[in-house]
Design a protein around this nucleic acid. Structure first.
Lengths: 333, 333
DNA sequence: TTGTACGCGTTATCAT
DNA sequence: ATGATAACGCGTACAA
């Protein structure tokens, strides 16, 4: 059932059918009704591929995300998908993992599928070494790229992110003001966000003229229980910390369990602050204090930017929002 | 840069270009090399829409899921996406929510985008009232449908699921054998999976000739803390249960917190068993005993089924796998 | 082995 | 207001 069939049944030309299909006003009420009736009756659906071919778009947006089973990324995808769909766009999902070469292939794949925009979900897409981001810049010549939570300075790449630097700086400062003297910064990786957080931590110490010791910062990527074990041995052998500033809530939960097995009194003797305000933080007892990085705002801003870009408007290349400190049971600031 | 440009530069016809593109053997090594060189040099990419138009497929699979921020569903999507991609298929993601009319619209949308298959991620897509599933059956006339964790009996709908009935039956039976006398079954909804679990619970009681009381089964959909409060008041006012069999781990975490505030001794005085073996279950202390419903297997089987269907093979319409009981700190069976 | 020509189902331009 | 027709880029049957 294609446009020719409809035109024949309705006794009009395909041009007219196309006109009613696309809501053109240059068609008499009478024929419009007639054509619409035939369409309903036959359950006609215009062929999306043919439309794509002539319009050069199928209204789809490519989502690049490291791992959608990650709670934070899954939430981001959820927000983004809803936002894009409200605007008539579908989402093609690519779970790339963390390896650069895979990511490059996935990006190529999205380009070959002719998505209208590609969005980088999560700050891990922005690498510390500039040359590793060149493929993004290259791709941005063909299609707009938007980044959720990462920043890169390039003409056709638009970024919305949380001020992770400021958030960690503030919370660390407050912890120090409260009398904690041996902070441990615990983070997964040197993603863009990880780097910002790291700098925030360092700044807090330097603001107070506290010399930074190498052992005060750990980068670790393991399961909750592995991380707990690591902390146990680290505490024993390397550095006896009295509070943990974590790069995400799962790391914080590990620290929580660490404190539990050592019987440290939380939050007075030992404080923990997570990041992301995610569900895992309210499963433990006492519940986790955390930093809410305003994911919903970041995502909705991303969606708005995309829509404006697609309609040819100019949009800011960088939008930053402040995190919000959420105090629960593992800190008292 | 299209196939004509390439053919011109290479001094061959578009047919030949098309042949090297699709790996036909009817092309001399010499011209193949030449054409490939030009392609590489110009960075040519065949137009996906034009291909879609002639081949009537763009190798994409539609994923219908209620809410991809749900941990369980996000995991399923992750497995599915990887599996499909390995087979050269992309995933179009639709987060439908739980309302039937929305779901019907999303399904139509996927059909209009001409996906090759639609997969229903999660058992909530199978409604208790048969007529509410008619839209699925109708759609299955146009495109194969596969269901992850739900079952519906229809010629072009293929289902892979966990034996939730058996799992809850066994675990409830074991709890009763251990001397627990006041079990509470706590579940979110009467999704297909919810119905199976419910029946398992009932069967366990009836097998022991224990009369089922209405208050022994709760269907509740709220946040962790709301659920905890609900349980507190339920325990006080309605039914003083001594163990909880939960339909998912989050509900179990709520019960965990409930037990914590009441100071009930877990697992001897009060036992809790979750479902899904998800991350939230290892964030609490003691960690949650749970039922692993073999999501990875279910998903990989789903992917295999889809690939076989697409290649024209016959595949079983129903595949069932048994859950695995994982004992941690909230039960001792 | 290679090339010609048509079909896929739209949209858009130009007449009428 | 409506219709004829080119164009989009590719795959392929048929011819050579």
């Amino acid at each position: 059932m294609n446009i020719y069939d409809i035109s024949e049944k309705a006794g009009v030309s395909i041009a007219t059918v196309s006109r009613v299909l696309n809501g053109s006003d240059n068609v008499s009420e009478k024929t419009r009704k007639k054509v619409e009736a035939i369409m309903k009756e036959t359950g006609y659906m215009p062929n999306a591929f043919a439309r794509g071919l002539t319009n050069n778009t199928m209204h789809t947006i490519g989502l690049l995300c490291a791992d959608c089973s990650d709670h934070f990324l899954a939430n981001a995808i959820s927000y983004l998908e809803h936002g894009f769909r409200e605007n008539g766009y579908d989402c093609l999902l690519c779970c790339t993992g963390y390896e650069l070469s895979n990511r490059q292939n996935y990006l190529k794949l999205l380009l070959s599928k002719k998505v209208d925009v590609v969005v980088l979900v999560g700050s891990t897409f922005i690498e510390p070494d500039e040359k590793d981001n060149q493929y993004l810049i290259d791709a941005s010549n063909e299609v707009p790229i938007v980044s959720v939570n990462g920043y890169i300075d390039s003409p056709n790449i638009y970024c919305t992110l949380c001020n992770d630097f400021e958030a960690i700086l503030n919370v660390t400062t407050n912890l120090l003001n409260k009398g904690f003297e041996k902070p441990l910064f615990l983070c997964r990786s040197l993603s863009y966000s990880g780097r910002q957080k790291s700098e925030g931590f360092k700044k807090a110490l330097s603001d107070k003229s506290i010399p930074l010791k190498k052992e005060q910062m750990i980068y670790y990527h393991g399961s909750i229980s592995d991380t707990k074990e690591m902390l146990l041995s680290y505490y024993e052998n390397t550095y006896q910390f009295d509070c943990v500033i974590a790069g995400d809530d799962e790391l914080a939960v590990s620290a929580h369990k660490f404190a539990g097995t050592l019987g440290l009194s939380v939050p007075d003797q030992f404080s923990i602050i997570g990041y992301n305000n995610s569900k895992v933080g309210i499963c433990c007892e006492p519940e986790l204090s955390t930093l809410d990085n305003k994911l919903e705002f970041v995502c909705s801003n991303t969606v708005n930017s995309v829509m404006n870009i697609l309609s040819g408007q100019r949009v800011p290349r960088k939008t930053i929002v402040s995190a919000e400190y959420i105090e629960r049971g593992t800190s008292d600031l």
